[in-house]
Write a protein that binds this DNA or RNA. Structure first.
Lengths: 134, 134
DNA sequence: GTACAATACATGCATGTGCAACGAATGTGT
DNA sequence: ACACATTCGTTGCACATGCATGTATTGTAC
């Protein structure tokens, strides 16, 4: 029922885009407020913690890799990791092979914070996402 | 094929949300850059101009009404209209009935700018939206 | 009619973000 | 070995946004 994979029809395209934009605004706003209020972290912080917590590689993940995953610019991610590091939720570790690279890995406190925040995240998603994307 | 209207299943919910977020990031970034580069206005400015241009009411639209339509806070819209007014693309007019209210209406220059920018907007949408929302 | 709540918009302030420039380290060609 | 381009992350800067507050106007209760 959606013109997502259809031929680019101008009117339908705009309608689809407005739907995406509106859905994103509502849900991301609700997520950000709930996470901030109940766990003291923003949505971007949560997303990064989640990627780090669910990475099987014990070394962590590269900065650029993370930036792509959460759709942030390089600079935004650099500062975001800086904030999380000050809060003691992640650590930076130099990469031995390529000394330009940095591995970010989650700390125990960071994992605990993520586990505490996950139910909130899922609950808001369950409440807002179906309503926002009919 | 979409879990949009399905029962709130945690994993699928997260997956759907990531899809929406990624789609929004890619498309809004592309739109903003293209509009800024080719027409000197940002995506928010374009969206507001479009709402004003396609309003049948000649008086324009109320500020709060516009804020809801483009998913911006009231303060953000106030400043946005301020920028557009300085650029000569919109005008503010006091509302006679309720002197607290303000009507924003588009100028000839604003309509011309919107008409010039619309093809760019549609083209980027046609190029990025289907690719970003498969 | 006077006091009080509610609405509509503007503004001070703090913050997160992207762009451009930078520094450090690695790869490449000669 | 040396110069040069490239990649990775950080930082200075400008700016748009949201929150809280302020001001003006309207509605409501008494």
């Amino acid at each position: 029922m959606r013109a997502v994979s259809a031929v680019p029809d101008p009117a339908g395209l705009v309608e689809t885009w407005r739907g995406v934009a509106q859905c994103h605004a509502k849900v991301s706003g609700a997520l950000d407020k709930a996470l901030e209020r109940e766990h003291g972290i923003g949505l971007s912080e949560f997303e990064v913690l989640e990627r780090l917590a669910t990475t099987e590689d014990a070394d962590g993940r590269r900065m650029q890799d993370l930036a792509d995953a959460v759709c942030l610019s390089q600079s935004a991610l650099s500062r975001l990791i800086g904030r999380l590091e000050i809060a003691g939720l992640v650590c930076r570790a130099m990469c031995a092979a390529d000394r330009r690279g940095i591995y970010a890995h989650i700390t125990d406190a960071g994992r605990a914070r993520w586990e505490a925040a996950q139910p909130t995240h899922r609950a808001v998603l369950a409440a807002e996402l179906p309503a926002a994307a009919p």
